[in-house]
């Protein structure tokens, strides 16, 4: 063999073969565990700490290995549920509605006690001079505004609905600039620093951040509270009974409703879980259709 073949031989031996072996290995996967996820609505760095505990609890209650996998976005949570990579999910109102439309047979089985009457806070930087009021704060028109995640119920859907209702315009027209902070904690940080004048935030996250001392009331404050709407819920796939045996869905529901450990409940954070059904979320679906977030 002459010199010309040498680089090719090296190339095949050093790169081509190992690359192909590598890729064929990684396509083999783990299967068989009951997997759940949760939308990343606040402090993502604590997601594992929050939900690994829940996985331990469910493993004990259900007698099958339960794993939690973290996801980066609301859409990723829905996609994982739809692709049958997770079988149970802690969704927001809107992401749950989307997931159940995409996975026929899936069901909302439990919601937080507080989720029956969830609210969104509109918050404003002190320099805006906006004061808390009972009615919709029409004074926010023309300022800069940040939502949370694009797929959030409390950070996007409901605030956009009320903005359109009261200002009679799409947010992009009603405000000087519209941003999507990505999550509720960051919405608070951005309004607090004055990067955005006004924002919409999940009231539970606001309370959490307040307790943690991350909020300076001299800089940012709540100026309006929306009327209540249904929000977070546990949604399960319709086919779990065929995989894990008859009555599995009922056992999962029971385990969630029976969760009384305050440390576990603080992961969500909820007082307790109460039964839920798909029709509880009809108002969310209607709102989402009315502002064309769902076809």
């Amino acid at each position: 063999m002459g010199q010309g073949w040498k680089p090719l031989g090296n190339f095949i031996r050093n790169i081509a073969l190992p690359a192909i072996v590598s890729v064929s290995f990684v396509t083999a996967a783990l299967a068989g565990d009951f997997v759940f996820t949760a939308i990343p609505d606040e402090d993502e760095t604590r997601l594992r700490q929050r939900f690994d505990k829940v996985a331990v609890y469910l493993t004990r209650e259900l007698g099958v290995k339960v794993r939690y996998i973290p996801v980066k976005s609301y859409a990723a949570a829905v996609a994982a549920f739809r692709n049958n990579h997770v079988h149970l999910a802690w969704f927001g109102g809107l992401s749950g509605v989307r997931a159940r439309l995409l996975v026929p047979g899936s069901e909302a089985i439990a919601q937080g006690y507080e989720d029956r009457f969830f609210i969104t806070y509109f918050i404003a930087h002190a320099s805006t001079g906006l004061r808390p009021a009972d009615g919709f704060p029409a004074g926010i028109a023309g300022r800069t505004f940040t939502f949370g995640s694009k797929g959030s119920t409390s950070g996007r859907l409901m605030p956009e609905f009320y903005i359109r209702k009261h200002l009679k315009q799409a947010p992009a027209k009603a405000f000087a600039r519209v941003g999507f902070s990505g999550d509720h904690s960051r919405t608070i940080a951005l309004v607090q620093s004055g990067a955005y004048a006004v924002g919409a935030v999940n009231y539970k996250v606001w309370a959490n951040e307040m307790k943690a001392g991350h909020i300076d009331p001299a800089k940012v404050s709540v100026i309006w509270k929306t009327p209540p709407y249904p929000d977070y819920q546990w949604t399960i796939r319709g086919d779990v009974d065929t995989v894990w045996g008859r009555g599995f869905k009922a056992r999962v529901t029971r385990a969630l409703l029976d969760m009384t450990d305050t440390d576990l409940l603080a992961s969500f954070p909820r007082k307790s879980f109460v039964p839920a059904k798909n029709s509880d979320y009809k108002p969310i679906l209607d709102v989402a259709r009315s502002i064309k977030l769902i076809d």
Partner: peptide
């Protein structure tokens, strides 16, 4: 280093393995 590339590539799958299952239906 070129000589280390195959070593890296053969270790890599052990690092990456363990994800979800790939489904043709999806």
């Amino acid at each position: 280093r070129p000589r280390l590339v195959p070593v890296y590539l053969l270790i890599a799958p052990f690092v990456l393995a363990g994800g979800a299952e790939i489904s043709l239906d999806n």
